[in-house]
Design a protein around this nucleic acid. Structure first.
Lengths: 208, 208
DNA sequence: AGGTGTGCTTGACACTGTCAAGTTGTACTG
DNA sequence: CAGTACAACTTGACAGTGTCAAGCACACCT
């Protein structure tokens, strides 16, 4: 069959990927089926295998895309006028909420392929490198490398915990009556940024 | 067939649950198969259906058990002499590491059954209630309820982020050479506790 | 004109979750 | 002590799944 004129080389790969992301956003990674993806992309049940080695290959491609996007989001933080810590929290959370499909896969070590797929691995590494750069903007560059790692891990934990609890976790159901989720999220981010600023100040570093 | 003398009423339920937890610890929730569970428990492929409505029923039972255990872990924090925040971080992380199978299911909203299974729901609620009690021991009880929720959400994010990054996330691979994972985790917990203490002090609350 | 490779398709197989319909032992009633 | 009811399973069947294998059609090079 001749492909429709609008379709270009590689279209199917994109169609498959988008279909997969859509399914993951709607129903979670659990219920992603190779055949359902193919149906949604309008191709035969084996077509995806032409672009991805198997089911795990699709997940790996999605998380590679995700880590690349997250690294970019970290880079964009440099452009803002906000304190770096606060901008970082917001960037992380926004990325998670705007790319739920990607995010759900990226941090699931059993399926994300970070240990098995080299491209995903390097994408994840470069995202972490950007996080490190961001941290050095918060603490200043002259900090001891071990201490810097500890600081990065703490900031990452805080961002990551908030993001996962918000997009998939039980936090939204627990918001007390009288406030809404958005303002509570804002409050958590403000509290966290403030707390980080106190710590940085006490460490005797430039408080930027 | 007559059950072996060592087997009691309800044994199969426990066997099935333990087999499921073992599989999840080893290979992740993704690859839990009803039939594999049954095989490991040494029963027919339909026996689990006698105790659990379906696959989601097993997940719901596991997360119910998990939330009950987590609530208990929070209660045990009251017994320690450590500052409450630090003891809380340690308790959360220890729970996650000692019950990886439970933990992996509990915070996966797509499978944990917290919205569909009433028992799981109430177990999750009571765990959150314990978290709230713990927070009031950190901030003091006279804090504004909204502010208390914000504080609880922040502490939860921090603990939860650290736990997920450690047990399933990419953090262990990123530890810089020259230190080991355990001492880095300890450092993150110390830094976090210190930061929380600074925040509490600045809030003008009892610094306990 | 013939060969080679890409981009698919159709077919088959073992395995999965789950519905339906037994089977077996045990407890309890009359 | 026969009869019945029920719990705790078992065996069987079916549609749906991931994936291996083979085939087909078209583009491009020689």
């Amino acid at each position: 069959m001749v492909p429709a004129p609008s379709e270009q080389h590689g279209d199917v790969r994109r169609l498959v990927l988008d279909a997969a992301i859509a399914i993951i956003e709607l129903e979670g990674a659990e219920s992603l089926s190779m055949r359902e993806v193919a149906r949604r992309a309008g191709v035969s049940h084996q077509a995806p295998y032409h672009y991805f080695s198997d089911r795990s290959g699709i997940f790996a491609a999605i998380s590679e895309e995700g880590f690349t996007g997250l690294a970019q989001a970290f880079r964009d933080v440099h452009e803002t006028e906000m304190p770096a810590a606060k901008a970082g929290f917001i960037a992380y959370l926004n990325f998670a909420r705007e790319h739920v499909g990607h995010f759900r896969v990226m941090f699931r070590n059993d399926i994300c392929g970070v240990t098995t797929h080299a491209l995903t691995q390097t994408a994840a590494d470069s995202a972490f490198e950007e996080l490190r750069l961001m941290v050095s903007r918060i603490t200043g560059p002259e900090i001891d490398p071990n201490k810097a790692f500890t600081f990065a891990a703490m900031l990452w934990s805080l961002s990551h915990g908030l993001a996962t609890l918000v997009i998939d976790g039980p936090l939204p159901n627990k918001v007390p009556p009288g406030t809404d989720l958005e303002s509570q999220i804002q409050a958590v981010i403000d509290l966290s940024s403030h707390m980080v600023a106190l710590e940085v100040a006490e460490m005797g570093l430039l408080p930027r």
